[in-house]
Design a binder for these strands. Structure first.
Lengths: 163, 163
DNA sequence: CGCCAATAGTTGTAGCGTCAAGTATTTGAT
DNA sequence: ATCAAATACTTGACGCTACAACTATTGGCG
């Protein structure tokens, strides 16, 4: 603890920029989705994960893993989405402890309606300012970071192709 | 709106990884700082910005810009930090509408104590898994994204050298 | 000068996430 | 077969952030 390995100037520059993006990007996505669709980014992400799942159905625990949420958080969010008619809860036949979250037709429509604006925002803020080389580099670098943050590759598994 | 430009497979892969990092990284930083120092990442960042400022003092509005916070949020946070003796409020002589936030000696000690563990976490999760080339690429890519998200380069201005 | 808009900040409220506690069910060990 | 531990969620309370409303200055403009 006494001899800290500080960051070099180059590492510090890169780190500061990354942390700025990490702070600013969620807000940018949030603002657009909230304004145009009345959805938080997490709600959209949840619906998107369900939309890609077989039968548009996932067990709460699996959905929680894919969205990197605690079960408690997901339970609250699903309750709200349920009240809005976008998701439905179903008892799981195989394991009666479990609950399945199912995307309703209305929920599907909401994802389909939200996707184009969301993708446009993603393009504007991240993809379009980058060259093809940048995108490849970004993929490689984020992959390395994720080896540490999410070694099991659980987050965003089967992510929506339209995200 | 009708003809959406979807993402290519390569763009989608990179995007999914970036969004995973954006979701997971704050939690990783938060957990370590909360556990070892009883500080949220935002509180740490706020103290770090003050620690780098002339006289360890910044006007609320300036500090809000550097930390990418609304004034309302910052006001609440500073109130809490004030109660803990880490920050002090001072009236601004030049402009009596304004309030200066000043880092106390105790606040300085808290930043100094928190920094090594925080840097270690940054290294473990981001820097050490990357090569020198990766770091340079990361810097370039995040720089391009920030041109969109923060064109005025306001966020993290004068960021702590020990962050 | 006097007034009005803009700026700087605070405070209250409501919504979302975390944590702790509680229920129901299943698994596994004896 | 039985009972304890683990699993799968749900719920309630508390803390933090965004939003809106409010006060106090300051800066312009006529």
């Amino acid at each position: 603890m006494t001899d800290t390995r500080w960051l070099t100037a180059e590492q510090l520059d890169a780190w500061k920029k990354l942390i700025a993006v990490v702070e600013l990007l969620p807000g940018a996505l949030e603002t657009q989705l909230q304004r145009d669709c009345g959805l938080s980014h997490f709600e959209y992400f949840t619906l998107a994960m369900l939309s890609e799942a077989p039968d548009r159905t996932l067990r709460m625990t699996t959905l929680a893993a894919h969205t990197n949420a605690t079960l408690a958080r997901l339970s609250h969010v699903v309750s709200r989405l349920e009240k809005r008619g976008l998701v439905r809860r179903e008892a799981c036949a195989q394991d009666r402890r479990a609950t399945n979250a199912v995307l309703t037709a209305q929920g599907w429509d909401a994802v389909v309606a939200a996707a184009p604006g969301h993708v446009a925002t993603v393009r504007e803020t991240v993809i379009d300012p980058l060259t093809a080389t940048d995108v490849a580099d970004l993929d490689r670098i984020m992959g390395r970071v994720l080896e540490v943050l999410d070694p099991a590759h659980v987050m965003g598994a089967r992510a929506a192709t339209d995200d």
